[in-house]
Design a protein around this nucleic acid. Structure first.
Lengths: 192, 192
DNA sequence: TTAACTGGACGCACCGTTGCGTATTATCGG
DNA sequence: CCGATAATACGCAACGGTGCGTCCAGTTAA
């Protein structure tokens, strides 16, 4: 018996190679086909892995996606909120980056796919926030502005961020043509 | 040839009975099963109509849902924004009604289903706004507040409403437990 | 020895399409 | 005015295709 604690199982150990292959294949297919055209069989084929291996470790498509989300395999590099001291300008710049990102070819359906996944699965819905880095990154910037006296001290930060991101999401769902002042208007709706 | 203008078709005329049966069945199944568990075959069975009759007139599941949305067969009675003269209190009351509505048993998945449908289909996404009466009802109330000098004249109304509703939607997607001050906090995030 | 792996097959549900028979309706010929 | 014809919508039934989730047999690795 090994010196370390814990009961050592007998038999083969889980293949990290297969695990990663599945998550990476999920990331690739998600990017190219979107969430709703994602299939377990497609992931298995793309990963070069048997379907059974997926079903052994994940209960559903959304569980795989949730894991890929955690491993940062689903989203492109996310814009960060700058900090020039001017909270309004910073938020507008960040929102513009966000809009530019989803305006890039190939990223059209990205938001829709993520939202669709969040609709289907509680796990994804919860983890999406963290994965977007929103709660962490944006909230921190807002709280800095509050500390600097640029925003009221009793501002409900979480709800503020939610409204900001929610406005962005709805904008994406409406598939409205990208107006040049969209970012500025959205931020100005919250900061008046 | 008939006196009236327009080329009169030959043959049987479209059955209004069948059309309504389909849309009403869609409404019932949508309410009980949610959007993603909706199937054409299920709708046909529930409506007592052949599958072909559906495919003859609608191109996809989302097209049927979009039509049902238009005919007001999908959503329960929607809260209206009161007008007491106090814009903040009115918005809080409205948001509270909204939260109460989706908190009712049987309505848990309502928002998720609608959002999922909007993700899948452009038509639904666009029509959802109208059907929710948001653009009309809420915007009007906001503009009244602007006219009354309670909100700045250059407020981007559409974006403001989008942020408000977006905050509500994200709140629903997160499935967070219903905090009693949720409505008040969300409105206060926008009106500070 | 035991568990994870691959590969293949199964039944099921739903998709979207097609063919067939029937009912309804406008148009045309007598 | 009336019957034949043509065009259309309907229900019923079946098709091939796809993906699901499960199962089994055989192989590989700790």
């Amino acid at each position: 018996m090994p010196a370390s604690a814990g009961v050592r199982r007998r038999g083969a150990v889980r293949s990290e190679e297969a695990r990663l292959a599945v998550l990476e294949a999920t990331g690739r297919l998600f990017a190219t086909q979107g969430y709703d055209h994602l299939t377990i069989e497609g992931i298995a084929a793309e990963a070069g892995v048997s379907k059974q291996t997926i079903y052994r470790w994940w209960s559903s498509k959304s569980a795989v996606v949730a894991d890929a989300l955690i491993e940062d395999l689903l989203l492109p590099d996310r814009p960060v909120v700058p900090d020039t001291g001017d909270i309004r300008a910073d938020l507008i710049a960040w929102m513009q980056d966000l809009l530019d990102l989803v305006a890039q070819p190939g990223n059209d359906g990205l938001v829709r796919s993520l939202v669709a996944a969040a609709c289907e699965s509680t796990d994804i819905g919860i983890r999406l926030n963290d994965a977007l880095g929103i709660t962490a990154t944006v909230s921190a910037r807002i709280e800095a502005a509050v500390a600097a006296g640029q925003l009221p001290a009793d501002l409900p930060v979480i709800e503020f961020v939610r409204a900001l991101v929610g406005g962005f999401v709805l904008h994406s769902l409406e598939r409205s043509e990208p107006a040049p002042e969209a970012a500025e208007r959205l931020v100005r709706a919250l900061l008046h």
